[in-house]
Design a protein around this nucleic acid. Structure first.
Length: 960
RNA sequence: GGGCGGAUAGCUCAGCCGGGAGAGCGCUGCCCUUACAAGGCAGAGGUCACAGGUUCGAUCCCUGUUCCGCCUACCA
């Protein structure tokens, strides 16, 4: 590969790591060299992830950053571990969102989509997509995402569109897609139907109105409760519960609907809850989902009083027609009040549905729409998770999944917008021309096309337009929307403009609606790999290995992918689903533009580097917890990156550039000094931990293990110890230390690479060439083998000995610090033990103790304590710091008294356990034994401190 | 209404199979010790929300309570 210029002399390595330059340089190299590419055919095992496609309109937010980081960690790990790893990127076309963006643009130009027409509009959207869309893709690259970019897909691509059409047609043929007239969620602003999932419910303070409906014969009527009095204008009945004794006599009564005088019946329906309100409910089938059901059961008329634009229709009556929903509510309430029919108004909290795109209050309306019959698809999808063919991690999301899947309702998939996959359904103008009503630009001047500045007008029947002399083509060209009567059959076809099966004519008109964006997203795991064609990629990478996503789209997307994957591929779309948390701000609030608490991931990358940012996200991704991101935390990991940088700098400054670890057998370098054996043992433990944690998707644990090892073992101890031989006279020891220093660093870099790709590559490239573990190709760390746990390096004795040594050093450091002995002052110190082995160990490592605790150590068995000295009592040794001429004795006495207090507490707590005879008899023997040993140790320590305190007080008295 | 999750150091959070409470940041003290002051060494700081229960033993398991999130639902 083309070698970017790595600093070649030590003096050139700057003292702190600056990420920017390295990041751009390495990303370009990796991607240019094709290191991210997976192979359609390979003898290596496949590992594949498809990215949850972000909206093409979107820009990278924290959620994306977390999502992408976790995927990249996994895919880089697997790639290094020898898999044919694919991470397939792409975006979705985000129908409503994208359409909104371009519509806003048009509004700025003083026009709108109806004036420019459908064809021109979609051209505009494509143009927008080409120039402004996909910003998020470029942002992902800044994060270091190792996606196979040449495979990038877009839901509106030719191939994916073909998949959409194939699926739609097949579902239709099987009766799983149908067109029907039902109540749907309608956004009066976006002017389209929404699926249930696209409605966000929010608790709102509102009012509940109690309204008297007098009997038609003038007798006592019924009182109903409603939160939406304006809908009463469309009431078709009043319903009560069949078993409600209060209303038994009223069933069948005809009441007079206030303000309209219309006569409506009182009916009985079990859906009514007797406990709520008055127990009698007004029924508005055209404007309430529950009422709609009741209406259909009782064959009530569906009187539409609110129109597509959220304004009252003519049906609402002269007094109200044209009013906005909210205005109308006031007017109706006032009118009822004036007539004395408003019994009461109370405050009431209820949840109100809002459009998830524009937050407008949705209006339930009865509309002709296309639906997917979901229940038959849901069944196998439930089974797949129950049986474990798909694992959801963490598991508690399974419950949510099942809950939703078992109560699933049909999915409304048609949208009344222009940007998206147009529904492949046509209606025959020749057979049903009278029942197909169209709106379009020709209506204003039936003799010809109206100027493009004219918005569409009233609907006209297709037959009528033809009769006025418009050609079929011309009608289509000017058509805006279409309403076909319920009994007009749809011709659903894989080919455009199919011939009518009954008349053979070609004058067919395509349904103007487009499909829900999620319909195409649901096919993503196989449509992106080439389906419906049988491609090698599909063969190799489906089912994908894992899906990484946030729980907010568990239903929107994950569930639907499972259904579609099982239906059309006959297999699950992925083996595992890893559900990660939401990223919140430091206060735990959801980040949102309106709250102004958004942290832009790219600002973080600019400021602290992609590696620090990625590491932070991984470290905070504990399963089942939200990620509360604060900049201080990121700074902490930026410091970590810098620490690694400087440790590496130290290594590079102290090893010859021609050093080779190429032919060093695994055992040799570790066979030497205690520190070498210890760090090797620790390294193998960390490698095991990281591998296991990643296997279990416990990213935070992998990150924590690396952090702990690098900073607190390699840097704090190993490097410090290494300095002794590096700066010493023993050439062999020096060389061995250099070897270990580099080998551990090099291995650690590979372990760390999935988390911090840029930094690790930058350093790895600067290592002596013959110290870099050979990658199968490319000469890059990202293709070098991922360190596997190596049990042969485990060295329990070395770890035990090292912790003794660390304890001894720690004890003296503690005394020094407590006694305020300056770090630069070399002191005398006595290490006394009863254990010969310990004495031998300390003696052997007197040099290390001397350096790391800055002292002249005297080591031995049963050494006398210096008369005026501070002491630290450890299980197997006592450490004395002679105080003569160094500090005041009183300070040490005070310190010891505090220690005595602490030790007493501990002894007391533990001793209490043994007072209970059941503990000794019932607890496992090893637990009891362990307790006994600890108790003995503590008691001994307490005794010795006491003695020492007494002695010092005595001396103190004598000398004063 | 149903469901899920949380409550552990000043802050943000780890804590797998019940058996000696951890990290990061912040704070305090001493140090520019030839990799790093974005650093080193050391330290203080916790009734593991509350009340019961199971157990020899509970931060961990069970029940209930309080508070806080979130998801879901056609009680108008």
């Amino acid at each position: 590969m083309t070698q970017p210029q790595a600093p070649d002399t030590l003096s050139q390595i700057p003292k702190s790591y600056s990420p920017q330059a390295a990041e751009d340089r390495w990303y370009e190299t990796w991607s240019g060299e094709g290191f991210f590419a997976a192979r359609d055919a390979s003898d290596r095992p496949a590992f594949s992830i498809v990215i949850p496609p972000p909206n093409v309109t979107g820009s990278l937010h924290m959620g994306h950053a977390l999502n992408a980081t976790l995927q990249d960690v996994l895919v880089r790990w697997k790639r290094m571990a020898g898999f044919n790893a694919l991470w397939l990127p792409g975006t979705d076309h985000a129908g409503i969102a994208t359409q909104n963006v371009v519509e806003k643009q048009l509004a700025g130009e003083g026009t709108d989509r109806h004036r420019i027409g459908r064809a021109e509009f979609t051209t505009r959207v494509w143009k927008w997509k080409e120039t402004s869309g996909g910003r998020i893709i470029r942002q992902l690259k800044r994060l270091g995402a190792s996606c196979d970019w040449p495979r990038e897909r877009f839901t509106m691509d030719e191939g994916l569109s073909r998949a959409v059409r194939e699926v739609f047609v097949r579902l239709f043929e099987e009766g799983l897609v149908y067109r029907g007239s039902y109540i749907v969620n309608w956004c009066p602003r976006c002017h389209t139907a929404l699926s249930d999932l696209e409605v966000e419910h929010e608790e709102r303070k509102g009012k509940i109105y109690f309204v008297r409906y007098p009997a038609a014969d003038g007798g006592p009527g019924v009182e109903v409760a409603t939160t939406r009095p304006e809908t009463m204008l469309g009431d078709a009945a009043v319903a009560v519960h069949p078993d409600d004794d209060r209303y038994k006599g009223k069933i069948g009564l005809v009441v007079s609907l206030p303000l309209t005088g219309r006569k409506i019946p009182v009916i009985a329906d079990p859906a009514v809850s007797p406990e709520f309100g008055t127990g009698a409910v007004k029924v508005t089938p055209a404007h309430d989902p529950a009422d709609f059901e009741i209406g259909r059961r009782h064959d009530l008329p569906e009187i539409t009083v609110i129109g597509d634009d959220g304004r009252m229709t003519a049906e609402a009556g002269e007094a109200f027609a044209g009013l906005d929903r909210a205005e109308c509510r006031e007017k109706v309430a006032a009118a009822l009040s004036a007539e004395g029919l408003l019994a009461a108004v109370q405050d009431h909290i209820h949840s109100v549905g809002h459009c998830y795109r524009c937050k407008t209050v949705v209006e339930p309306l009865v509309k002709d729409q296309w639906f997917v019959r979901v229940a038959p698809l849901a069944e196998p999808a439930i089974e797949a998770v129950e049986s474990g063919r798909i694992r959801i991690v963490p598991r508690n999301w399974e419950k949510t999944y099942f809950e939703w899947m078992r109560n699933i309702r049909d999915w409304c998939i048609s949208r009344q917008i222009w940007w998206g996959h147009r529904i492949p359904a046509w209606y025959c103008g020749d057979c049903h021309g009278g029942k197909i009503r169209l709106k379009g630009r020709w209506v204003e001047e039936p003799s010809g096309m109206a100027p493009a500045t004219q918005p569409p007008s009233h609907p006209a029947a297709y037959a009528q337009l033809r009769a006025q002399g418009l050609s079929h083509e011309r009608i289509l060209a000017g058509m805006d929307t279409l309403i076909a009567d319920r009994d007009v059959p749809a011709i659903v076809s894989r080919e455009d403009n199919p011939a009518c099966p009954s008349c053979g004519g070609k004058n067919v008109i395509q349904d103007p609606d487009v499909l829900d964006t999620w319909f195409s997203s649901a096919l993503w795991p196989f449509s992106t790999l080439g389906w419906p064609d049988k491609t090698p990629a599909l063969e190799t990478f489906y089912p994908t290995s894992i899906l990484v996503t946030g729980f907010d789209i568990l239903f929107f997307w994950v569930a639907r992918m499972i259904m579609m994957g099982l239906k059309f591929m006959g297999d699950v779309p992925f083996r595992d689903v890893y559900i990660h948390a939401l990223v919140r701000d430091a206060e735990g609030r959801k980040m949102s533009k309106s709250k102004g608490n958004v942290i832009d991931p790219l600002d973080i990358v600019d400021k602290h580097g992609a590696d620090a940012f990625r590491f932070t996200l991984a470290a905070m991704a504990a399963q089942g917890r939200d990620v509360k991101l604060s900049e201080e935390r990121i700074e902490g990991y930026r410091n970590f990156a810098n620490k690694i940088w400087n440790a590496s700098r130290f290594v590079l400054m102290n090893v010859p550039p021609d050093l080779s670890t190429r032919n060093v057998s695994r055992e040799t370098p570790w066979a030497g000094a205690l520190a070498d054996r210890w760090i090797a043992s620790r390294l193998s433990a960390v490698a095991a931990e990281v591998n296991q944690a990643l296997t279990d998707y416990r990213f935070n644990e992998a990150a924590a293990a690396l952090y702990q090892f690098i900073w607190h073992e390699y840097c704090d101890w190993y490097i410090e110890l290494a300095k002794i031989s590096l700066f010493g006279e023993d050439a062999a020891a020096k060389q061995r230390t250099q070897t270990v220093l580099v080998m551990v660093l090099e291995t650690t870099l590979r372990l760390l690479h999935p988390f911090m790709p840029f930094l690790t590559e930058e350093i790895w490239q600067a290592l002596p060439p013959d110290c870099r573990t050979q990658a199968p190709r490319g000469g890059t760390i990202m293709l070098a083998p991922f360190p596997a746990p190596d049990g042969s390096l485990n060295d329990r004795p070395a770890e035990a000995a090292m912790s003794k040594l660390m304890e001894a050093i720690g004890a003296l450091r503690m005394l020094r610090s407590e006694m305020s002995v300056p770090p630069s002052l070399e002191v005398a110190a006595v290490f006394s033990t009863r254990n010969k082995g310990v004495a031998a160990l300390l003696d052997e490592h007197a040099g290390e103790i001397a350096r790391l605790a800055r002292c002249r150590p005297e080591i031995g068995v049963g050494l006398a304590r210096p008369s005026k000295s501070a002491v630290q009592i450890l299980p197997e040794m006592e450490v004395y710091l002679p105080l003569e001429g160094v500090v005041r004795i009183e300070d040490e006495i005070a310190r010891l008294e505090k220690e005595i207090e602490k030790a007493d507490k501990e002894v007391f707590g533990l001793a209490k356990k043994f007072e209970n005879p059941d503990f000794v008899s019932k607890a496992p023997p090893e637990v009891v034994e362990n307790g006994r040993a600890r108790l003995a140790e503590l008691a001994e320590k307490r005794r010795k401190i006491g003695e020492q305190a007494a002695r010092l007080s005595e001396i103190g008295r004598e000398s004063s």
